[in-house]
Design a protein around this nucleic acid. Structure first.
Lengths: 213, 213
DNA sequence: ACCTGAACACCGTTCAAGT
DNA sequence: ACCTGAACACCGTTCAAGT
C-alpha cells in the first residue's frame, strides 16, 4: 500500500480501470480516482484531457489485455481462440463492453480489429463475407458479453429470489418466459453458450462462402 | 406548442424519451425534462421515483413500440419480422440499445421476451436450442443495433474525413483494417447486414435441431 | 513541469412549505 | 393531491497561484 509513486497517464488509467472493475462505471469519478492514487482531483488534468478521454483510454487499455490470435489452426479455430480471450477480458471488466461501442478505437483496438480482419481475409472467404463477417463477429463478442454483464450486475445473489417470485406470479400469463426462467435456475448449465453461438456464425460464414464445403 | 397540460408519469416518460432521442442519454437531466414540460424539477418526483427508475420506464416505453410478431409464416419468418421491427424501433431511439441490457425488464419487455420464446418453442427445436437460441437472438438484436448506433453517433458527417486520414496514415501498418474502411466508404452498400447475420443464427439453430432438415 | 485551492455552473435528491 | 423554493452533497472543469 505504498502511497504516492509519481502520477502518470498509465497509472491514472490503471487506477481508473481498477476502480470501475470494483464499483462500476457509474460510480467512477475524477475525485475518486484521484483519492485512490493519493492525489487531488486537479492533478489528473495534467495527464488526461478530461473524463471522456480518460474513459476512451481505459477501454483501449482493456483491449490491450486481449491475447493476439494463435499462429496455427483453421480460421475457425483462430477466431474461437481470439474471441474466447476477448470474452474473458470483457468479463473481467464488466463495464468495458458497454463503453466499447461508444468510443473511438485507440491504438490497441485498431490492432485488434486488424487481427480479426486478417484471419477472415486469409480464410479466403471473399470480400463481401469478410466485410459482413467482421461485423457479425465483433457484434457477438461485445453484445454477448454485454448481456452477460448486465445480467450478473443487476441480479447476482438475489436473482433466485426474483425468479421465484416471478414464477409464482406470472407463470400463467407468460408461460414461455416462465419456462426459460426455470432453465436459468437449473443448476446443470448449458455448456459454453458464447462459443456455441459464435460457432453458428462462423459455420454460417463458411457455408455462405463455400456452399459445397 | 400548448404548454402545461397536467403532469403525469406517461407524459414525463414521453418527454424524456423525446429529449434523449434528440440530445442523447448523456445530456438527459431531470431539470431538462421538467423544462421541456414547463414544470420545475421537483414536480417530476411526484410521478417517478428517481432518475434511474425513469430510465427503466423509458426503456419499457420504447419496447412497447415493437410490433408483435405476425401470426402466420415459418418460424424463421416470424423471427425475422419481429427482429426487424425491434431493430427499427431501436434505431429510432439510439440511446435505448445501450440502456436495454442495464435495466430490469418492465411489463412490455416481459411480454416481448415471451413472444420470442413462444416462436422458438412452437418451432419444436427442443428445449436446449430454445434456451440458447433465445440468448443468441436477443443478443444479436440489441448488440448489432448498439454497434450501429455507436458508429453513427460518433462519426456521422465527419466519418469520411476521419476515414481518409486513417487511410493516408495507417494503410501500411494495418492493411486489413484499411481494406475494411474502404468497404465502409464504398457508396454501394452491402445489403441488409442485420437480417443477414440473423439468418446465419436462425439457420444454424435449425440445423443444430434438425441435422437432416 | 507538475501540483493544488478556490470557484463556477451544474447535477440528483431531501425536506418543509405552500395550494 | 400535487406543485415548488431553498438547501445539501456532489459533480466536471477553469483559472490563477504555488513549487
Amino acid at each position: 500500500m505504498s502511497r504516492r509513486p509519481p502520477l502518470s497517464r498509465p497509472r491514472i488509467l490503471e487506477a481508473a480501470v481498477a476502480f470501475a472493475d470494483e464499483h462500476g462505471a457509474d460510480a467512477l469519478t475524477m475525485r475518486k480516482v484521484a483519492d485512490a492514487l493519493g492525489f487531488r482531483v486537479m492533478s489528473l488534468y495534467n495527464h488526461v484531457a478530461n473524463k471522456n478521454e480518460m474513459l476512451t483510454g481505459m477501454v483501449d487499455l482493456v483491449v490491450g489485455e486481449i491475447e493476439p490470435p494463435p499462429t496455427r489452426g483453421s480460421w475457425q479455430e483462430l477466431m474461437q481462440a481470439s474471441a474466447a480471450s476477448a470474452h474473458h477480458v470483457l468479463l473481467r471488466h464488466p463495464w468495458a463492453a458497454s463503453e466499447w461501442s461508444k468510443r473511438h478505437p485507440g491504438p490497441n483496438r485498431l490492432r485488434y480489429m486488424d487481427d480479426i480482419l486478417r484471419i477472415l481475409t486469409e480464410a479466403d472467404l471473399g470480400p463481401s463475407i469478410v466485410y459482413r463477417g467482421y461485423h457479425a463477429i465483433t457484434m457477438h463478442i461485445v453484445g454477448f458479453t454485454l448481456q452477460e454483464a448486465g445480467f450478473e450486475g443487476e441480479m447476482a445473489s438475489d436473482f433466485e429470489q426474483m425468479a421465484q417470485d416471478f414464477l409464482d406470479q406470472m407463470s400463467d400469463q407468460l408461460p414461455y418466459l416462465a419456462e426459460h426462467v426455470r432453465g436459468h435456475l437449473d443448476p446443470c448449465g448449458h455448456g459454453d453458450e458464447f462459443a456455441f453461438v459464435l460457432s453458428l456464425i462462423l459455420d454460417g460464414l463458411e457455408r455462405a462462402a463455400r456452399p459445397r464445403g
